[in-house]
Write a protein that binds this DNA or RNA. Sequence first.
DNA 1: CTGAAAGCGCTTACAG
DNA 2: CTGAAAGCGCTTACAG
Lengths: 347, 347
Amino acid sequence: MVTLKDVAKLAEVSVSTVSIVINGKTKERNIPSKTYNKVMKAIDELGYQPNVSARRLRNLDRAKPIIALYWTLDTRTNMLTALLAGIQSEIEKKQFDFELVIRIYTNDQIAKDAKEIMNNTYNGIIIGATSEADLAYLESLSPRMPIIFINRQSKKFSTVYVDSSEVAIEAVSLLTKQSVQQIGVVAVESPYVASNQRINAFLEECRKQHIVVDQSHIITAPNSLAGGVTAAGRYLQLTDRPKTIFCESDTIVMGMIHELNRLKIKIPEEVAIISIGMTGPDATQYSTPPITAIDIPSEQIAAAAISILSKSLSQKNLHDRLLPVHQKIAPTTYIRASFPLPPDDNL
Amino acid sequence: MVTLKDVAKLAEVSVSTVSIVINGKTKERNIPSKTYNKVMKAIDELGYQPNVSARRLRNLDRAKPIIALYWTLDTRTNMLTALLAGIQSEIEKKQFDFELVIRIYTNDQIAKDAKEIMNNTYNGIIIGATSEADLAYLESLSPRMPIIFINRQSKKFSTVYVDSSEVAIEAVSLLTKQSVQQIGVVAVESPYVASNQRINAFLEECRKQHIVVDQSHIITAPNSLAGGVTAAGRYLQLTDRPKTIFCESDTIVMGMIHELNRLKIKIPEEVAIISIGMTGPDATQYSTPPITAIDIPSEQIAAAAISILSKSLSQKNLHDRLLPVHQKIAPTTYIRASFPLPPDDNL
DNA sequence: CTGAAAGCGCTTACAG
DNA sequence: CTGAAAGCGCTTACAG
């Protein structure tokens, strides 16, 4: 790394002079152009770049805690925007000002990024979309700053989550109200922890309520709009296809609905659809037809995570600061045209 | 600010010892529990929090440049996700590794956040969604790191943009192919620079091509799905309503289409629709019906911005590093069912 | 087991 | 006009 000192040596001036030049105070400090040129030439030759940490330390302008949000970006249509909106709304309450760093990682490879975590590069960390391997790996570490997992279970670290079985119970209760006997399931391909859990909890709850889920009626697709088109195609090829579908992703469901509309399959007359919502209630509400969804409130989750982090960081005691907090967020159900309730329920 | 020194003094030990305890090396260094407790008690009492900059400086673990992405979050459905995806794809090319800080600001109030900019807190800055006031303010400053504006014009700073008149010409060329004589316009309410420009360029181009835009046929609405519903309502109340609509936002257009579908207004038979796309081509493609859109490729814009920044930062010479670069990105036109081309064009 | 000291890269009074 | 020195808060080899 090239430092001020290196520049000073090459330019045959002191570090003070170099610093003055770099900070644009040449005129103010009456540096003659000859000196200025020497310094600039040395900067050029060495390719000097200031060290931001040193500057910050020296200027003490960094009272703000730095919070890293670790997220994956496999699919474009994800919760990230909703999360950012939630984080923003917390910042605006002004109780807690911080710098937000976005770290993108690849599932099953969080270890590569763990250096920053262990180095205490950040004051707090929020991690979403972890795989089981990521989770296990992180649990094996002992970081010294608060960590919050989104939609995961952990004893060691704080969590903000929507309870999968609560979502499942809610979904299945809608089905029983309509006396649905048999259902098809659309799940996200190569799913990570939370989605696995949700599907499993759903299947479990169906069993309890004697709703039949034929193994061949479980369709998986990539978590994208195009994936939804594929899923719709698979669904239509099923023999004895179920009249109701439960979809685990609102992105997939929008693709499905597009395809079903295109093929003039009537919703809900020919297929009724329930989905889990991840990207905010607007997405499902303004679909044609609007989609009945059990919504995971991403903004609320983000706000809760920030709030926990804020409280943690205000703890004086390091031990208290690392004390895990577990906050459960309730899902919200939106009944819409894709799966209406029976008339007597609409009173 | 409480420092290690303060803790050491209160605990009546040296800073070395405090540092060892804080870094979890108590066992490794054979610190007796009595000492440990003294230190922890002092940390508790003072509420000590480590200074991240000092740590980074000391550990020299920060070779990565820090890039700040300034964005507004007025509307939830914005380009941010697409931009992040574009940034991510650039990181993955591994030519350039950096830390990404998201800074949320409020339009017309960038001055509040300008301290960080001027302090050289970041190695490079990408700013989007600026208002005219923000732009003017920033142009009055002389920051010492590269700044890139998204979809804005600036001589002083680098820009990555889609040319508004190009978008307008493209849109109007579609209209002339269909011999459209008269058109309604849906614009974003309280628009910022780029959207103003786009609407103005569009109106200008319509004039040139003798397409009539009645002043009363220009509808404005908030940039949201709900805003689209409102816009559809206003449109339907127009006397002598135009059979074709040009909408400046794909978010608004999706809300409009939802409402038009609900009211069984046939698209394109009763209303044909063209939109500008901002949130990626998928959004308009999987609508019912799919929407003809002139797409502003956000991912490509983000990738270009990062690429420019990467090149700037690799310049040894400070002057070269600040040299503005202007890159124009071409919009992409997607012809879809909401505004099909005449048959002879579909060969 | 613990402390004094050096030093990370920078900026800024201060002295001359 | 320019340099020597102090010091931001931290970690770590070293000495005892």
